[in-house]
């Protein structure tokens, strides 16, 4: 059976759902970050699949979008590390359920 955009978009959807579950369910803030990274990767797969199989007037636009997603993901990972270290300094854990300082 030939593999086309359907299979790639379905794969991207499955990966996005796994990432969503990880981001929602995990207790550790770094595990939540890993879920977000899986979701970003899933979206990148869909972008590249549309660029490869559907083309349109600017076929490379999808791939340029992925370059920007990579940039934002790298910036996000660096900030997340800094935030995790800053939170850990005060309370010796990075459990998301415990970080309730903004609760009235």
């Amino acid at each position: 059976m030939d593999v086309g955009v359907q299979q790639f978009v379905a794969l991207s959807g499955v990966l996005f759902a796994i990432g969503l579950y990880t981001a929602l369910a995990k207790r550790n803030a770094i595990a939540v970050l890993m879920g977000v990274e899986i979701m970003l990767n899933a979206v990148n797969i869909a972008f590249v699949a549309f660029s490869r199989f559907i083309r349109g007037e600017d076929p490379l636009a999808g791939q340029v979008f992925v370059v920007f997603t990579l940039t934002v993901a790298a910036a996000e990972a660096a900030l997340m590390l800094a935030i995790a270290v800053a939170i850990y300094r005060g309370r010796e854990s990075v459990e998301v359920d415990e970080i309730t300082d903004l609760k009235a």
């Binding site: 929602l24 369910a25 995990k26 207790r27 550790n28 770094i30 595990a31 970050l33 890993m34 990274e37 993901a73 790298a74 990972a77 660096a78 997340m80 590390l81 995790a84 270290v85 850990y88 010796e92 854990s93 990075v94 459990e95 998301v96 359920d97």
Partner: peptide, 25 residues
């Protein structure tokens, strides 16, 4: 880059919750 950063983040924040468990959600 991102993989090594996340590895660093895990190793810099050791805690009982280093276990990869699920919360109430």
């Amino acid at each position: 880059a991102v993989g090594v950063l996340v590895l660093f983040a895990v190793m810099l924040t050791p805690s009982p919750w280093s276990e990869n468990t699920e919360g109430r959600l």
